[in-house]
Computed example of a mutant assay.
Amino acid sequence: MTRRRGAELEAAIADAALAVLVQRGAAGVTMEAVAAAAGTSKAVLYRRWPDSAALLRAALLGVAQAAIPTADTGSYRGDMLAVLDGWVNVFTGPRAALMRAAVGAMAQDPELAETFRSGVIDWRKHEMDELLRRGMARGDVRADVPVELARELGQSVLWHRLLITGDPISRELALRLVDDVLVPFVSPPTTAGS
């Protein structure tokens, strides 16, 4: 068997931690369980993370940062469509069960909840703030938009469907959210005669 190192080993460990979370819940994510799932030793894990909670938090942040685009597409509409497409892909792909499990784990683990909010959620808020500021600078987002609401509108519908209603999540839904809700909400008023 080839020995894994560096990024390859860390990716295998993160995948194992997330798989254990889905299968066993937050309480089941122990260093022993993750080491067994990753095919490595607990000592290898402890060299990188102080405990299983830190390992799980790092793995969840990695998923969020990898899944949701942050690049400037040149327009608010394009930026928001890229973000919502990223969430649609997560919520309809193999990571959907992980997202449900992560939210469930937050209810059982206050430290995970706080770290998820301060790490993953705060990171997303910052990225959305930047996206809206770029739109304001370009002129396709009006300057008085309530950023704290605008940054959550589209994503909250997708999360609600994933966690509460079970209604379909699709690219078509993302397009409707962007074109029927988000763009009208932030667009500067049109002037008469234009």
Score class of each variant (00 low, 15 high):
residue 132 L to I: 15
residue 102 A to P: 09
residue 185 F to Y: 14
residue 8 E to S: 06
residue 71 A to W: 06
residue 80 M to P: 04
residue 66 A to V: 02
residue 5 R to W: 08
residue 127 E to T: 09
residue 106 M to F: 11
residue 14 A to Q: 03
residue 115 T to S: 03
residue 169 I to K: 08
residue 78 G to S: 13
residue 87 W to D: 06
residue 167 D to N: 12
residue 105 A to I: 11
residue 165 T to K: 12
residue 30 T to R: 00
residue 94 P to N: 07
residue 99 M to E: 13
residue 102 A to Y: 02
residue 113 A to R: 10
residue 21 L to G: 00
residue 106 M to D: 08
residue 67 A to T: 00
residue 59 A to R: 04
residue 104 G to S: 13
residue 83 V to K: 14
residue 187 S to P: 02
residue 169 I to V: 15
residue 21 L to I: 02
residue 164 I to D: 08
residue 87 W to F: 15
residue 192 A to I: 12
residue 121 I to N: 06
residue 16 A to S: 11
residue 185 F to T: 09
residue 130 E to N: 07
residue 25 G to E: 06
residue 163 L to F: 13
residue 37 A to I: 02
residue 134 R to N: 02
residue 120 V to D: 09
residue 82 A to V: 12
residue 192 A to Q: 06
residue 118 S to L: 08
residue 83 V to D: 05
residue 112 L to A: 11
residue 146 P to I: 11
residue 84 L to G: 14
residue 19 A to S: 03
residue 40 T to Q: 02
residue 39 G to D: 01
residue 3 R to S: 12
residue 33 A to W: 01
residue 85 D to T: 14
residue 61 L to R: 07
residue 12 A to P: 00
residue 91 F to N: 09
residue 134 R to E: 08
residue 168 P to D: 15
residue 10 E to G: 08
residue 160 H to F: 14
residue 93 G to C: 08
residue 164 I to T: 15
residue 23 Q to E: 14
residue 1 M to K: 05
residue 10 E to Q: 13
residue 150 A to C: 13
residue 179 D to W: 11
residue 66 A to Q: 04
residue 82 A to H: 08
residue 145 V to G: 06
residue 53 A to V: 14
residue 96 A to P: 03
residue 61 L to C: 07
residue 192 A to S: 12
residue 151 R to E: 08
residue 162 L to H: 11
residue 128 M to H: 04
residue 105 A to V: 07
